[in-house]
């Protein structure tokens, strides 16, 4: 188990390194010299040279990459060339907002998704099961930014129940909650459908298994059969799906934060890309990738903890 944990963490670090290399590659593949794009067509050559130097773009690529990793390892992600503030501070400001959005979206997905999935199993084969199937597949198929725009139109523009943009006034919790409802729903709704299908499939499979029949043959109460014997097993594949899902929730946050003009990692990264603000782009990608890898690694370790068969397969 410990060797497995170490292996997983080493793998995560390696992935992070490769992702950052790829990011550097992309920065140099995008057409246009960052300094001229950033300063606009009327910039003087002297100004451009100054900005290029400040961004560190006058150095050879290998030196740039080395500096980036060396600094990042010490917790220094560089200075924003525009605001002159440390990149790390900006990320630490924005990240909790995105994390809150993602967590609430995931909470929607878990509560609605598992409930709908279990309902479909309870009423399997009936009209309710088929209707839930249709709803789930529709939820999966519609991209989050489309959902976001329609939610905005219906609840903010027509009905005017909820605010259209922003994150609410700071210190005013009810207004922050109200501002969170629509964006989190936009991010989470695809996952509601996905989890509902997932939970339905794995519960159906497990409820038909021989060991469930054994538990019933020993007269265990049905509630105990479902919770202790079936759900404990059905939750295992769901965990890895949720972990991977958090990654896609982070990326749909990029769209949704833009649509709802919420502060967060998504807004930070889009703004930085448009302004070719490379230190911010690199720093944000580094932090989100690291976070995502952390979640996936934790999920793998949790699965190994929950399923003794996985644990033993790893020990071999």
């Amino acid at each position: 188990m410990l060797t497995y944990a170490i292996k997983r963490i080493a793998l995560a670090v390696l992935i992070l390194f490769v992702v950052m290399l790829a990011m550097y590659g992309m920065v140099f593949l995008v057409p246009g010299d960052p300094a001229s794009v950033a300063l606009g067509p009327r910039a003087t050559p002297a100004l451009k040279a100054m900005l290029t130097e400040r961004m560190g773009l006058d150095q050879p690529v290998a030196v740039q990459i080395w500096r980036f990793f060396a600094n990042a390892a010490q917790g220094d992600l560089g200075i924003d060339v525009w605001s002159k503030r440390p990149v790390l501070d900006q990320i630490l400001e924005a990240f909790p907002q995105t994390l809150l959005l993602g967590t609430v979206a995931l909470a929607w997905a878990l509560t609605l998704g598992i409930t709908l999935g279990v309902l479909a199993v309870v009423y399997r084969g009936t009209f309710i099961d088929r209707a839930l199937g249709l709803i789930s597949v529709s939820f999966i198929s519609v991209p989050s930014f489309v959902v976001a725009i329609y939610l905005l139109l219906i609840f903010a523009v027509w009905l005017q129940w909820l605010p259209a943009i922003g994150a609410g006034k700071s210190g005013d919790i009810p207004s922050q909650i109200k501002a969170l409802i629509l964006p989190s729903l936009a991010v989470g709704i695809g996952w509601v459908g996905y989890l509902a299908r997932m939970v339905r499939a794995s519960m159906l499979e497990i409820m038909a298994a021989n060991h469930i029949r054994t538990a019933r043959a020993f007269g265990l109460p049905e509630r105990k059969v479902v919770t202790r014997y079936a759900l404990r097993l059905a939750i295992v594949p769901t965990i890895s799906v949720i972990a991977v899902g958090l990654g896609s929730i982070l990326s749909s946050a990029v769209f949704v934060e833009t649509v709802f003009s919420r502060p967060g990692i998504g807004t930070l990264i889009t703004g930085a890309v448009f302004k070719r603000n490379y230190p911010v782009v690199m720093g944000t990608v580094l932090v989100t990738t690291a976070f995502y890898l952390l979640v996936i690694t934790c999920a793998d370790l949790l699965i190994a903890k929950l399923d003794p068969r996985v644990r033993d397969a790893l020990a071999r």
Binding site: N210, H211, R232, L233, V236, D307, R309
Partner: peptide, 8 residues
């Protein structure tokens, strides 16, 4: 092989 619950 399948008569018992694999996670208990």
């Amino acid at each position: 092989m399948t008569a018992f619950n694999p996670v208990l």
